[in-house]
Amino acid sequence: MQHSFLTRSLVLVLLLAAAAGASAQAPAGYPNKPIRFVVGFPPGGTNDIVARALGQKLTENLGQSFVIENRGGANTAIASELFVRSAPDGYTIMLNAPGHATNPALMKLPFDPIKDFAFITLVAETQNLLVVHPSFPPKSVEELIAISRRHPGEINYASSGTGTTVHLSAELFQYMAGVKWVHIPYKGGGPAVIELLAGQTSVYFGNLPTVIQHVRAGKLRPLAVTGARRSPVVPDIPTVAERGVPGFEVTVWYGVSAPARTPRAIIERLNSEIVRALNSPDLRARLTNAGADPVGNPPEQYAAFVQNEIVKWAKVIEAAGIKGE
């Protein structure tokens, strides 16, 4: 009896070890069923479009469907809350957006934005474009700062909602340039742009793809882009940092993560598949057309990037005194 118990225990231990060993390698046959791809916004926005374009390419390459699941609300927080509770088996992934990094400072979250996630890769980046209504005098960032200093609290800037990168870009700008504007929030970028075009507001830090056509049509005047480098889409427009606000940087980004404790092998597999997809010319073209520059970096770099963003926005939100929920 004793002997057989020992034998059985030994077999069990060996089996467990084998199982553990297997999980360190790519599980055979992964993926062998459809993969849920969670998006923290309702259908229709840039997030949704990026996820659907990427998901379609991954479906083609991996032979398993990537099913987009839109779960809008609270700037991705509602989707994240459900997402972190799903099984870490590689069959649920999520598209992260800037809200992931700004929410921790704006609201109490029922999850940890770093520890509960296994970051896979940064998919694409875009930036905001600082535009003004053509009737508004400033022709450059320097002139905008000068006129803002002469008329504190008189200039209206529009945003697509409290806590969005559009809003926070303007807050960061006011904070770093030492000026004071009045915030006019709208429900989404569409209405904000309409009233900007009509001259109801003067300044707007719009997502590049949503304002570029109005700049090309001469209905809005571009002053600067918010990224660390100039955008390949509009190489002749300077960055805010170049024109008098050194160190200013706002990036709008889209990345993919899995729930924490997803096996390392699966993370690496997904990373290499997404990078491969991002290198295919047709997906590149689609993302570029939608105004996003494809990236595709290693998991560690992406994780460090998100960590940095969280720290940076916590400082801005604190300094600007933006109230959350």
């Binding site: 479009i49 374009a53 793809p209 570029i212 056509q213 109005h214 090309r216 049509a217 209905k219 073209a285 689609r286 057309n289 939608a290 105004g291």
Partner: peptide, 9 residues
């Protein structure tokens, strides 16, 4: 936009 058509005037 994803087809490369810039909507607008």
């Amino acid at each position: 936009t994803i087809q490369g058509i810039v909507p607008g005037p």
